[in-house]
Design a protein around this nucleic acid. Sequence first.
DNA 1: CGAAATTTTGATCACGTTCAACTTCAGTGG
DNA 2: CCACTGAAGTTGAACGTGATCAAAATTTCG
Lengths: 259, 259
Amino acid sequence: MAGSVRKIGGSVWNSPFLLRLRHFVDLTADDVETLRALIEFETPVEQRRDLVVDGYPYSKLCFVKDGMAARYKVLRNGKRQIVNVLVPGDIVGLPGSFLDQAPFSVIALTEMKLEVCSHDAFVAACYRRPKFALALSWLAVQEATLYAEHIVDIGRRTPVERLAHLLLEFHARLSMVGRASANAFDLPISQEVMSDALGLSVPHLNRMLAKLRKDGMVVAAERRIELIDMKALQRLAHFQPTALSRIPAPLQVEQELIA
Amino acid sequence: MAGSVRKIGGSVWNSPFLLRLRHFVDLTADDVETLRALIEFETPVEQRRDLVVDGYPYSKLCFVKDGMAARYKVLRNGKRQIVNVLVPGDIVGLPGSFLDQAPFSVIALTEMKLEVCSHDAFVAACYRRPKFALALSWLAVQEATLYAEHIVDIGRRTPVERLAHLLLEFHARLSMVGRASANAFDLPISQEVMSDALGLSVPHLNRMLAKLRKDGMVVAAERRIELIDMKALQRLAHFQPTALSRIPAPLQVEQELIA
DNA sequence: CGAAATTTTGATCACGTTCAACTTCAGTGG
DNA sequence: CCACTGAAGTTGAACGTGATCAAAATTTCG
């Protein structure tokens, strides 16, 4: 039984997380197998389920295989701010597992599938394969860059610009893991979620979305977004795609340093 | 000559970067020496000098030894958003050096001293010492967590709360590297900088600062901040200190996995 | 089909921006 | 020594944006 399961798993591990990694690091077959072996189990999660709770310890790294989640904080006055919407390939537990207590909560916005890995096991693997530790750095840097852009969104972009930027960002991130076509993607989240991500009220977000529709930039219906005029959106949002550089291979680095 | 310089440097390397690292990783004398050797040179920087320019490649890691800088982006309409104020111990080039082109500019807010290290050299060292790669991950995670908190600030905290939070955060970060007393610290930045960091206009920031003064929570004068009523400030700002966990040592990790 | 969640629209109002003037202070040259 | 300059801080008045509250329309789901 176990053998057959392993066999099936062994055929192709097409995890979005792996897809994402391959964008910036070369992985040997052995690397991939090692990574896959780190995953203790795969688990489904129902919608609205809390994955991480603000203030409590958390010590897992869960790679999102399917579905979306939100990393957020609720303030005393009841206002919620979503700092990031997690999509396939993202990691639940980053940053939570690196701190004594998670600084944010994470909730499943849809049904999800997670690949669960122990934080300690991953760190142990990093000692054995420095490449993994570097990959982790790259992932964390990517996360930080994403957040930085969100700060600009909320701080200085106007509401329409913010929304446009959010949609373009989703498109770019989902494309990375093969979940978007050239100009459209599924976005199975409510407007309340979007407004909490953008620091806006629901009615105002709705109006801004209506504006993008009226101006012929997007079609949004049935939780699906179609970017009609990508150029105009990019101009509106001051969008500049971020190109993560690749992790240099060990030899490569040494050679460059000599040269 | 070189010998004497090395000797002086060799006595004690009291870099704020090192101070910061020691909060979450155990470093042997050899580790420290290796790190120090990565630094190519130390350089002074005058105020207002651009260190990194948005959109251009950058391939250094500079550890801030003294002074402050701002990581920011300017939009088409001329509005500036500062995503982070760098203090001693912080790294110029994170995230810039990990991307093909820097996503943000960095400008010196004061005179500074930087310890300059090549990004490639650091990565090479990470391959040789996985601990360094993990430290880099931890630093990047810390950066991401800081940014996430800024998103909450700007998105859902009221202007006074934001300011209170910013001051508390500065205090915590400066304390980490020995640049703050129990309830006071130097903050050599203008109100324009603070307002751009908080997504507020200068006049409004000024009023909020006046409010904190009037309510007896802070004394702010001559670019120095004194936190009079820390408890009240923390309550106002919904401040929760973030405790970065320590990087487990290799043996420790293996043992825990067996147990 | 009924109940609940979500989306949409409208009217009002407060908060924070904007613009402007004025103050204070440090640095500089007459 | 004091006028001059420019940067930073402070205060005031008016305006506009986006929140808030409320309700209707629509969709989703049990």
